[in-house]
Design a protein around this nucleic acid. Sequence first.
DNA 1: AAATCTTCTGACCGATTGGTCAGAAGATGG
DNA 2: CCATCTTCTGACCAATCGGTCAGAAGATTT
Lengths: 217, 217
Amino acid sequence: MSVKKRSVKPVRRSLAKIRKDNSDQILKVAERLFSDKGYSGTTISAIAKEAGLPKANVLYYFHTKDALYKRVLSNILSIWMLSMNDMTEDQHPRDALRSYIVKKIRQSKEHPHASRIFAAEILHGAPYLREQLETDLKEQFQATCQVFRHWISKQWMDPVNPEHLMFMLWSSTQAYADFQVQSSIMLSKTELDDQDFNEGADLLVRLVLKGCGINQV
Amino acid sequence: MSVKKRSVKPVRRSLAKIRKDNSDQILKVAERLFSDKGYSGTTISAIAKEAGLPKANVLYYFHTKDALYKRVLSNILSIWMLSMNDMTEDQHPRDALRSYIVKKIRQSKEHPHASRIFAAEILHGAPYLREQLETDLKEQFQATCQVFRHWISKQWMDPVNPEHLMFMLWSSTQAYADFQVQSSIMLSKTELDDQDFNEGADLLVRLVLKGCGINQV
DNA sequence: AAATCTTCTGACCGATTGGTCAGAAGATGG
DNA sequence: CCATCTTCTGACCAATCGGTCAGAAGATTT
């Protein structure tokens, strides 16, 4: 245990650092609260309180609650898109699908709050994300479906419906973040551990590969 | 087009009918709004407005917002539990799993609002449902896992992890309600039609049966 | 038709909400 | 050290929130 005192005599910080520290802290707290309570259930005062700042200071950095929420969302989406587009047609589906599932479940484990905000957005009709879903995400979705069709034409997998396979992959991996509370209740645990995530990934990989007639090595 | 006028000269209604009509109408509107906007995002005034009643009248039937929400939730949960517990060990998994998936997806199609409220509850930590999840739902969950284990011991299916199979079934069927907005955007439709739900069910049945090594007839 | 019970509702309440603003406090560059 | 720019914040605001209540309006019972 360190007994080093902080913030008793405020250290002189550069403006750049002050700005970065505070907005990072606000974004971090906001992500957790938006995830736990939803947009309407989260108040600026609550964010300010947990971030250790006066409410007016939060509004100094993010002029409106809306703007803050949009910033949180866009941060999330950029992380999201990255892990989406790494299934390519020159890979074998055996490897591509496995690593996709593993990566997605790891993301659910490591960024549960982000994942849940995303889910809540869509659950409520995607009022803020609709445009980006219609452009960026849809583009990636269709590209990935093309990859599936390519694999099917090469007879690397059964002729399954590509779109619905994507939906299944998305929802069943996403669930390890969104429904973590329910899962841990069912398993009589306070929270899921690494083994649970691994077992989930194993089951999904098995189901998808075998289910699509992809011969596992 | 009918030109029959209603509510110009109010019809004489019995007290029993009045009470039933109004509370039903309130519950119906409340379910839709809670589903669309979440608990905090839904106001009593909004419910009253859409139900065509003054706010004070809504509070006459349901004394608090909390009580109204709980009523909506408990209605949902009772529908839910019914479709859960019809997998038994004397059935063959081929039939039992297929009809479970089909039934669950039909539920997502026919009760999308209820489904989304349920999902949002869990997403935000199940503050109102926790107790029932820990008792009723957990009991059914464990019973169903036992059925899976029985099927496995009879070598009717591969030795897959029963708990995670349940999670997969739950999330991938649930998704056809929760993420309907996203799915329809991806498919360039205003909303999913019967064929979409059927294709989804077909894919899931195929994946689960083949994936679990259950020989389809 | 009178008495009683239920339903209905406009007016009102304190608390909380997101947001504003003037001016203090602190950091920066010369 | 001073002028200037950025950061910070308490006080304040209109709007809205969930909820109360007295009394009107309507239904039921006698």
